[in-house]
Simulated assay, not measured.
Amino acid sequence: MSLKARFIALSVVLVLSVAMFSLFFVQAYHSRFPFLQRIFYGHAGTAAVSGEHANADYSPYPGLKASDTQPDGHYYRNRVLVLMYHDVSPSPTDVHSLSVRNFERQLQLMKDNNFHWITMSQYREFILHDRPVPENAVLLTFDDGYESFYKYAYPLLEKYRAPATSFLIVDTVGNPKMHGVEKLNWDQVKEMHRGGIDFFSHTFNLHYYAPTDARGKHPEPALSSRLYLKDKGRRETENEYEARVDADLQQANAVLKQELGEDNHVLAFPYGAFSEPLLQICRKRGIDVTLTVKSGLNKPGQTNGFRLNAGGMSNDPELQLALMKQAEQRLGHAHFDRSPAYKRFAIAFLVVAAATFAVWIYVGSALFRQRGTKNG
């Protein structure tokens, strides 16, 4: 191959490698540059590409307006929108608490606009075996096992005949040593379970943030992170982390089995945080469906699922419904953070570009000298 042909080929490789590096760099670091996110992802960028630690408080509703009632509305098919709630209160004082009035308004709007509530059993069959679900399918979920679920949410669920799932921090159920917001007791749980409410694990007692280094300045969710062991002056090893998490999930499953007589196959991750080792532990324990706090629509095979936050004092039921009607357009392309993979690809193409550039300079210099010799 002549020097000229080599130079042209290297130029093409150089341009392509720089282009690929730029593409993966943007994919990996768009969240650090808001203008890049706006350019490449538009208004839906935050919902579509944010990482596992997504902000669960989905408010505001950009560009949304309340719409007319559509009793025969068709919004999405072969997908499930999972809604996430926490506390429900007549007079909320916490930003994450939803008023009873707004919760009932949500239920009425969903019913009036042709949304169809499904059970967790239906959801699992849909995710794991591609079993059909109604169009505009919605799964209602409640985290943390607050007593307010029994006092305020459950009566409304019964009124509207809406199935729901509650994720319990198992160690807090009926535990007088637990302080803070009142939690459910087992009598309440069993009564609601007989009434058709499903209960699954939100861990046994790993629903908290803890230090991951000696300075304690960067606490992480205890379920998904290797924690700092103060007595040993170091961070957990991978084996220690996996043993701790496995023991917690096993204990939660055992208690749920003892109290409710059913195996636990579903886990909602505290704060939505997860890791690959954690997913492997879940599979080992027979937990085949997990849920995060990231907004999106769920499709068959998506065993680690998205949830749209529908609670909080800032919730607007009419705008919430408008978002649900546009779920396919606004949330249907969501995915979990792929930044680590994109960073590896970016580095690989940077190395290729650098090596190609060095050879390109060498061949270009030789070609320049060759032409100089001919002209001389």
Results as ranks from 00 to 15, higher is better:
residue 207 H to Y: 06
residue 119 T to W: 09
residue 179 H to Y: 06
residue 219 P to C: 05
residue 167 F to I: 02
residue 100 V to G: 01
residue 182 E to S: 15
residue 203 T to E: 00
residue 125 E to Y: 09
residue 154 Y to T: 01
residue 91 S to H: 15
residue 150 Y to N: 02
residue 99 S to R: 08
residue 102 N to M: 05
residue 213 D to I: 07
residue 151 K to M: 13
residue 80 V to G: 04
residue 136 N to C: 06
residue 128 L to I: 04
residue 147 E to I: 07
residue 127 I to R: 04
residue 187 D to V: 12
residue 151 K to V: 13
residue 135 E to M: 11
residue 214 A to M: 09
residue 115 F to K: 09
residue 80 V to H: 03
residue 158 E to W: 04
residue 191 E to T: 15
residue 165 T to V: 13
residue 77 R to L: 14
residue 201 S to W: 01
residue 193 H to P: 06
residue 154 Y to C: 04
residue 134 P to C: 09
residue 206 L to G: 00
residue 165 T to W: 03
residue 119 T to Q: 11
residue 194 R to Y: 07
residue 168 L to P: 00
residue 79 R to I: 00
residue 158 E to T: 10
residue 216 G to H: 05
residue 193 H to C: 14
residue 209 Y to T: 10
residue 114 N to H: 15
residue 101 R to W: 02
residue 139 L to R: 04
residue 120 M to V: 12
residue 106 Q to K: 01
residue 194 R to V: 10
residue 121 S to E: 14
residue 162 A to G: 04
residue 107 L to K: 03
residue 151 K to P: 00
residue 150 Y to E: 01
residue 217 K to H: 14
residue 113 N to I: 10
residue 183 K to N: 11
residue 190 K to C: 12
residue 100 V to C: 03
residue 155 P to N: 11
residue 97 S to T: 15
residue 171 D to C: 00
residue 206 L to M: 12
residue 212 T to R: 11
residue 88 V to L: 11
residue 87 D to R: 12
residue 191 E to I: 04
residue 79 R to F: 03
residue 219 P to E: 01
residue 127 I to T: 09
residue 196 G to H: 07
residue 182 E to P: 13
residue 177 K to L: 14
residue 125 E to K: 15
residue 91 S to V: 10
residue 188 Q to S: 07
residue 112 D to F: 08
residue 78 N to F: 07
residue 78 N to L: 07
residue 121 S to Q: 15
residue 173 V to N: 01
residue 126 F to P: 04
residue 183 K to V: 02
residue 168 L to W: 00
residue 87 D to A: 13
residue 159 K to N: 10
residue 134 P to W: 10
residue 183 K to P: 08
residue 157 L to E: 06
residue 99 S to H: 05
residue 190 K to M: 12
residue 127 I to L: 12
residue 207 H to A: 06
residue 205 N to G: 11
residue 199 F to G: 02
residue 92 P to M: 07
residue 173 V to D: 02
residue 103 F to E: 07
residue 110 M to E: 00
residue 214 A to G: 12
residue 167 F to G: 03
residue 186 W to Y: 07
residue 144 D to G: 07
residue 157 L to I: 12
residue 87 D to W: 07
residue 177 K to Y: 14
residue 88 V to G: 01
residue 203 T to L: 06
residue 160 Y to P: 00
residue 181 V to T: 15
residue 174 G to V: 03
residue 86 H to E: 11
residue 136 N to E: 03
residue 200 F to R: 10
residue 162 A to R: 11
residue 96 H to M: 14
residue 106 Q to W: 07
residue 162 A to W: 09
residue 153 A to S: 12
residue 192 M to Q: 05
residue 94 D to Y: 13
residue 163 P to G: 06
residue 134 P to E: 08
residue 189 V to G: 06
residue 104 E to G: 02
residue 163 P to R: 04
residue 86 H to G: 08
residue 144 D to L: 03
residue 211 P to Q: 05
residue 200 F to G: 01
residue 146 Y to D: 00
residue 114 N to D: 14
residue 114 N to Q: 10
residue 115 F to D: 02
residue 198 D to L: 11
residue 127 I to H: 08
residue 186 W to K: 08
residue 186 W to D: 05
residue 197 I to A: 06
residue 199 F to K: 06
residue 150 Y to A: 10
residue 90 P to M: 09
residue 215 R to H: 14
residue 77 R to E: 15
residue 164 A to K: 01
residue 127 I to C: 02
